[in-house]
Write a protein that binds this DNA or RNA. Sequence first.
DNA 1: CAGAATCCGGCGAGATACTG
DNA 2: CAGTATCTCGCCGGATTCTG
Lengths: 135, 135
Amino acid sequence: MDDQVVQWDTRADCDVRKILDRVADKWSLLVIALLDRRTMRFSELRRAIDGVSQRMLTVTLRQLERDGLVTRTVYPVVPPRVEYELTALGFSLHEVIKSLVVWTEEHQREISDARTAYDERTTEEERLLQAPMAR
Amino acid sequence: MDDQVVQWDTRADCDVRKILDRVADKWSLLVIALLDRRTMRFSELRRAIDGVSQRMLTVTLRQLERDGLVTRTVYPVVPPRVEYELTALGFSLHEVIKSLVVWTEEHQREISDARTAYDERTTEEERLLQAPMAR
DNA sequence: CAGAATCCGGCGAGATACTG
DNA sequence: CAGTATCTCGCCGGATTCTG
């Protein structure tokens, strides 16, 4: 019986869970995905990631820096110039995340089709429930 | 000039972004990671994922079902028995996510070390700022 | 330009109670 | 057992203002 169940950790406060929560973060994911090799400035990232607020980008970048995934380089010029770059660790994560992005691009059609089908099934059921006394 | 920047979409409301938000969801990630081949019952998933509330597990499973990633099978017995299983699409995502989990396991040490180092640097700086007039 | 600090409103998510 | 339904609170995150 090759009952090979991968049953990893499980506790909410284990390291893997805590790190996954970070990695699975909406903005973190996008930053890591965008920072490909080259360095990027703060405002450049801000423009590249539509919808991110200044505050959330700052917070996200600080977390990533703390996790050792990006480096933050401040150039003492005026106006200030701050550049962000993936560390080696960050780049190894980048590659994993990139495969996730690629997966999403490849299957977005199947997913939106599934959503449409599901919604139609659901609204159809609701329609039937609306008039259960019919006939 | 091989300025090969992968610059994918960018808009907050594009399909890839919307799907990534779902995929990058904390509970979704864990459910997909846990559902490996075999089917699992609701309560089984609930026990396996420490910290998830009944409500959030229900919501998460509904979303995954809507996205065509899991199937939901209700057995009309009493007490009710509901089983969840990955679809083919869901399993292909499972493999990507699994590589993410593996990455996390392999690098959790580096990350926690980086966090410790960062925190020490930070508190040290704060300590210096606390007594700038010293001497 | 790249933040830090502050304020605050919405809603995500937990707790609880009820049901087929 | 596997959900719904409802209420409520916390805090996430946006908007704004102020610096080096």
